[in-house]
Design a protein around this nucleic acid. Sequence first.
DNA 1: ATATTTTGTTTGGCATAACTAACTTTTTTA
DNA 2: TAAAAAAGTTAGTTATGCCAAACAAAATAT
Lengths: 176, 176
Amino acid sequence: MKKGSGLSESLEDYLEVILDLEKTNKVARAKNIAERLDIKRGSVTGALKSLEEKGLVNYSPYSYITLTPKGEKIAREITRRHAGLRDFLYQVLQVDAETADATACRMEHVIDEQTMDRLMCFFDYIHSCPRTGPDWLENFTAHCSSKRHDWEQCDQCLSVCLARHRKKAGTMDAHE
Amino acid sequence: MKKGSGLSESLEDYLEVILDLEKTNKVARAKNIAERLDIKRGSVTGALKSLEEKGLVNYSPYSYITLTPKGEKIAREITRRHAGLRDFLYQVLQVDAETADATACRMEHVIDEQTMDRLMCFFDYIHSCPRTGPDWLENFTAHCSSKRHDWEQCDQCLSVCLARHRKKAGTMDAHE
DNA sequence: ATATTTTGTTTGGCATAACTAACTTTTTTA
DNA sequence: TAAAAAAGTTAGTTATGCCAAACAAAATAT
């Protein structure tokens, strides 16, 4: 029971795509599923049968395809992981947008609950702790290029950081 | 050409295990490979043939198994990713040791070069920037539990952080 | 209403990657 | 050195998941 859904990566991808097509196109069609997953139409039929047997989609030959509540729950979970991973990769690690999305798409199938929770908590921590935040992430870019920390600016960087927090704390007090 | 090696996750695992067995046992044996990967002995033979065809292992029936330079290069790359991911998950996200290792073992096959580089750079940045470092990571634990930042302590936390840096900077100057 | 196009399905094939069980080679031990 | 045990291989089976190509149903256009 390492991976929540117990499904193959392939079937998880089908559910994720079907959910998205339901949202954008109102309805999911085999042709669109095939396009999104970059596979042939014929391959979709077999997968739908498999998902139907597992009670994750409502499907019979030539019918419209919809997710069952059970299938939707899994699809939403995968989508949540995808978005969380993508945001971390793009906003924190500052990987380019395409790579962030593609990598998130692969990682979403192998990350476990505990790690995902911690990652999201970490993402939140970076943005809420005064010691980090947006300017700290900006400095990361410089660190990435130079591969070493620029100690000359640390004193000023820390002073600015402290001053900003005190100003913000003051504003917050005033509102109480 | 998204994934460096072009190998399946399965074959990457074989190479990784063979490298480790070479290091610890001097030599890799089919039986040990099977144990490590939790598969049957019979399954190993086919994989070794496949790796042999690809020029990644030196192998003929009943012979000892060693990595070719090409195979060793890939094995080392996978191992490097494994270690880097595991350390990030364990030391930064503070996931428990077993989960960190197991998750790293799955992620190592799906992470790309750019993302891996950035992650390692980020790991380094956390440890070398005075605004973060070990005490900042300790505070992450509290943030994880409470799910919100404790603003009461931020002023002191920042002051201590600045003072520590100045003290350290002073020590560094003295050595010049 | 019928012909055409689009969409969906079926069939058979291929590749991967595992399994079991029988068999062979190698190694150990008596 | 011969028997027994351990390690390795082979053959046949299974499951997943894709493909191409032929076929069937549905939708669109004339």
